[in-house]
Every structure is written in structure tokens, then in C-alpha cells.
Design a protein around this nucleic acid. Structure first.
Lengths: 155, 155
DNA sequence: ATACAATTGAGAACAATTCTCAATTATGCC
DNA sequence: GGCATAATTGAGAATTGTTCTCAATTGTAT
């Protein structure tokens, strides 16, 4: 499975600009940090990774930037039951594609899976529609995560 | 739709005892607080409710008790995207039955639904099985939540 | 090059949760 | 019923993840 950068700098910059925001070294550093392969990073981890390339960056900027990117739909913020938010690139050109998470409650390993994803998506779509009708909600997103013990931790 | 207490005191006590733990007024108060109808309470809310009947109870005890009950599978702890854990009675005699949540991201209203739940459960079961095989996980639980705007907030 | 608003880093502030510890209490045993 | 003992408790301090404040800096349109 080839690893390719999860963000396309040109595309991201265009998007940021599109929302009337500026391109800054801090924002580049956050994009680079998140594009490390297969990552689901906490803010602290993004901070460490970004600091390597841009030592002056502050933690507050990390949070602000992640919040901004999340608002723009470039990044997904999610939570796996410990008390830290995690971030990953959202769907889109160059990203991992629609997937859900399988989380080990012991070692916190997170597996992205997209097996069964078509069936899931189809059912979720129908459910969404049904719920929207019945309860009058305008549904925007969903979360689906499985929790358990990975092979190593199950011993 | 008849409202019945969501916890059966005798049953809960038996369970607590079964785990070698003691029955205390604080634990009773937490059970009572959680059994108010349709509730998905934060720790703070459980604290307030429990305090009404047992004014000496401390917040730390609330957290400890909720953690304990969660460990025993009597209570579900979940999160709806604000930064507070929420608690509800888990499945079991007297409980609400298996359901998922529909969350309004504006007013934080939480709707329990169990429409479509059979299809969902069936798909989730199969997915669980597939994931368990493919990734060697021993899966214990899942979370499925829909996020959107309720009728009032959509305006 | 200039002007101005957006962005930044640092540290203080905050909110939810967990920890510490001495005092209290539920339970098994006589 | 009373005793011994370990579990449980309340209070407040401590911790942790995250957000806020503010003066200094910087990206961008002109």
C-alpha cells in the first residue's frame, strides 16, 4: 500500500485562502504534522511534531489551528474514550477515504477500517433519512466506533 | 408511554454485592438520580440530583460511583462533543433497551432512538465479527451517534 | 513600501476530573 | 447486638486538557 502525503499543500492553501484566512508557517507546520502516515494525533502530539520543523510554535496556536481546520472540514476531530481529542485529515483528495475506527481500550491503538464501509454507509444514510423525518433533525455527521482489545492486549 | 423507574433497587444491589462491593447511601442516591426519566446526566447533574436526597454527598463520590457502575456494566458513559461525560443506565431489566443517540450540536438535546435498531444491530454484529477476524480484535462495544440540529435550532 | 487586520507565543485562567488523606461506615463474624 | 476490618466517604488540593488574554508580529491587499 503506497504511502502518499495526506495533504496536498496547494489544495490546502487554496482552501484556507478561500475562507479568507492567511497562510502562515504555523499552519504549514500543523498540516505537515498531520500528514505523517496513518496518524490520529492528539494536540500534544501535533505540537511535538510541528515543533520539530518550527520550534517557535506555541501550543495555543496548535489548538487554534486545529479548531480552524476542523471548522473548515479539512480535519476531523474525534475522541476515543481517553480524555484527549484526536485529529486526522478529513475525507478529500489525498486523504484516507471514508473510514471508521476500531479502538483498543488498553493500548489506545486505532485501526482505520473501511471493510463493510459500503453497507455501513448505505444503512447510515437510510437511518439518517429516517431520523431526520421522524425527529425533525437536520443531521450533519455521525460517529461510529468499535471498542475492544487488540490482539496483543487480549492476552 | 408509561414511565417506570429505570433501576430496580433490588437488582442493582444484588449486582453491587455480587462484585463484592458495599451498598451505601451515596450509591443509592446515584442510582436514584440516574433513574429520573429519559436522562443523560453529566456528573454535575447527577451531583445536584443526588444532593437533593442526600445533601452530604460529595462530587468526588459521584465520579467514583459512576466509574464503578460503568465498570460493572450497569451504566453507560458516553460523550456528545461538549467536554462533559454523560451517563445513563445501561441495557438490562428495567432499562431503556438498546438504543443509539441523536444529538443536537446547538442545544445539546439528546434523543434516544431505536427505530432501525434491528437493522443496525444486525449490521453492527456482522461488522464486529468481520473486524474481529480481520484485525484480531476482541470487540466489546461500539458507539454510534448522529449529530445535527434539532427542529428548534435549525431555524 | 505601507497599513491594517489576522495571527501569534507565552502564560494565566478555566473546567472537568482525579487524587490524597483522615474520618466514617457497611459487613462478616462472634 | 457489638467488634474488627477493609471499603467508602467528603473536602479540598492537584492534575490535565483546553481556552483565553494581550501585546508583539506578520501576511496580504493596495
Amino acid at each position: 500500500m503506497p504511502q502518499h502525503k495526506n495533504h496536498n499543500p496547494a489544495c490546502c492553501c487554496r482552501k484556507i485562502r478561500g475562507f479568507g484566512r492567511r497562510i502562515t508557517p504555523a499552519r504549514h507546520a500543523v498540516l505537515d504534522a498531520l500528514s505523517a502516515r496513518g496518524e490520529h494525533l492528539t494536540a500534544e502530539e501535533v505540537f511535538k511534531a510541528a515543533s520539530r520543523h518550527y520550534p517557535d510554535i506555541g501550543l495555543a496556536t496548535i489548538y487554534r489551528t486545529l479548531e480552524l481546520f476542523t471548522k473548515f472540514g479539512m480535519v476531523n476531530k474525534f475522541d476515543t474514550g481517553d480524555d484527549k481529542a484526536r485529529y486526522e485529515f478529513a475525507d478529500g483528495p489525498g486523504a484516507k477515504g471514508h473510514h471508521h475506527h476500531l479502538v483498543c481500550t488498553s493500548c489506545r491503538r486505532i485501526v482505520d477500517y473501511n471493510d463493510f464501509i459500503n453497507e455501513e454507509t448505505e444503512l447510515l444514510r437510510r437511518t439518517e433519512e429516517g431520523l431526520a423525518n421522524k425527529y425533525g433533525f437536520k443531521i450533519n455527521t455521525h460517529i461510529l466506533q468499535f471498542y475492544g482489545l487488540c490482539k496483543d492486549c487480549a492476552k
